[in-house]
Design a protein around this nucleic acid. Structure first.
Length: 423
RNA sequence: GUGACCAUAGCUCAAUUGGCAGAGCACCUGGCUGUGGACCAGGUGGUUGCGGGUUCGAGCCCCACUGGUCACCCCA
């Protein structure tokens, strides 16, 4: 029982998981580049008030999930619980509204939320985050959704359910909420404690309640799409038309909402099956009121975030294979002190030539060294024993084939370079 | 934050009504004085998550804590 363990809700990403992380990371960067999004790296912590304003008071994130602290100078700081607020801060701070709009940015990094850990839910987890700022065109909504779409497609996911809805805007949403609350008040009898609390705090949340008894009531609840103002209705219609044109399968989900005031119009989520209750692998939407809330000029924006751990969980669940670790070309196995000196020189030359090479340490038997070469997955074991050294040679053993040949020491690098080119 | 279940070697798990902490895998070594994988043999590895209590005696029973899992809340 070790003295220390990784803090609750955090995890070590071990070498055996690296292939998944590398693959997902590479695909994310590639997709972003394909769509013309540029990488932005913002600080892992920001002023606490940025998140309080940006994420919103009354949200669970701000009310109970932030890692907030005061540093030695007394500044109130918080480990970022999401990317968007920090990216918007950077947009304003660097006057990005003077750049060609929309400004299309993406990020990739750790996020912190103090939640109770569960499968697919961690206190430190990674997100791939995409934002497009400064443009209202519904075609941009579809582009942002397509980035997520294509990432999952590239990763080999099929049959993901893409769900969309419109959450209105400050002009039409209040009217809808009023109607919704009025409707629920007629059905208080079937609502549980959680649902009654939602009714008070955040009526929109009632729509995705999981209480079985409430389901029929929810199914018959007023739909926001019936309450949208002309602007929002037209926007939503165009988004759907573009998606149809592109043959993107999606479902309009009337229960999909975002409770924050500055979320507007398009919202979307992607669910993956098989990773437990935390099955939202992607969530996003338009936030035309956010930048203004952060003290900037009225500026529309849309974005999404997707959780890397949940993506990898889903890949494992579905048995999606990823490229393995690159294996070393050579494992240099010397015998005796003379051999070790030559081996050290040889492994250095190999690496200088760009060939991944390992050196056997210690003073172990050839048998043990070959076993180590095998475990390391080396293409060749290079044996430097008395016999070989006496002739200025090295024995190159091809591990997979079990064949062996002697090569002059000074030719080893060239030999392996040619050999690895042929692979 | 709420509820339920769980915690024995690096991993997966045994251990009879409370009676000497074990196996497989992995790792190391040898069988083969210079040849990997398969096989055989041996070895390293534990304060049974932590702290109390009951008992002649606790891995096992009781309490508290910590951590894990699952669900809720919420979310990626």
């Amino acid at each position: 029982m070790p003295l220390y363990r990784a803090p609750r809700g955090t995890q070590d990403i071990l070498p055996e998981d690296r292939p998944y992380w590398r693959h997902v990371t590479e695909r994310a960067h590639a997709v972003a580049a394909l769509y013309g999004y540029e990488f932005i790296d913002t600080p892992i912590f920001e002023e606490t008030s940025l998140f309080v304003r940006g994420v919103g008071e009354g949200t669970d994130i701000v009310d109970k999930e932030m890692y907030s602290f005061q540093d030695k100078g007394g500044d109130d700081l918080t480990l970022r619980p999401e990317f968007t607020a920090g990216v918007m801060r950077a947009y304003l701070e660097h006057g990005m509204r003077t750049r060609p709009q929309p400004v299309k940015l993406y990020s990739f990094g750790p996020i912190f939320r103090r939640e109770k850990p569960q499968a697919g839910r961690y206190r430190q987890f990674w997100q791939f985050n995409v934002e497009a700022i400064g443009e209202m065109d519904p075609a941009l909504d579809v582009e942002v959704m397509s980035v997520a779409w294509q990432l999952y497609e590239d990763l080999g996911f099929g049959g993901l359910s893409f769900q969309i809805n419109s959450t209105g805007d400050p002009r039409c949403r209040p009217r809808y909420i009023e109607a919704l609350v009025a409707y629920y008040r007629q059905h208080l009898d079937v609502l549980g404690d959680d649902d009654r609390r939602r009714l008070e705090r955040n009526p929109l949340r009632l729509l995705d309640s999981k209480v079985p008894a409430a389901q029929p009531v929810i199914a018959a609840a007023p739909k926001i799409t019936d309450y949208l103002c002309d602007d929002c209705a037209q926007h939503f219609a165009r988004v759907r038309r573009y998606l149809d044109e592109l043959d993107r399968p999606y479902a309009v989900n009337h229960r999909l909402v975002r409770g924050l005031d500055y979320y507007t119009k398009t919202v979307f989520e992607v669910y993956a099956e098989g990773i437990g209750a935390q099955n939202a692998v992607c969530g996003g939407g338009r936030y035309d009121g956010l930048i203004e809330a952060l003290g900037g000029p009225p500026t529309p924006g849309i974005g999404f975030a997707t959780g890397i751990e949940r993506i990898i969980l889903t890949m494992k669940e579905r048995g999606i294979a990823v490229p393995g670790q690159p294996r070393p070309t050579a494992f240099v196995a010397p015998l005796g002190e003379d051999g070790k000196t030559v081996a050290l020189k040889l492994v250095t030359d190999l690496r200088a030539a760009g060939l991944p090479a390992l050196l056997a340490f210690g003073d172990r038997s050839l048998k043990a060294q070959l076993r180590a070469a095998d475990r390391a997955g080396a293409t060749y074991a290079i044996i430097l024993g008395e016999d070989e050294l006496a002739q200025g040679q090295a024995a190159l053993r091809h591990m997979a084939q079990g064949t062996q040949q002697n090569v002059l020491l000074q030719d080893v690098v060239t030999f392996l370079k040619n050999d690895s080119r042929e692979q």
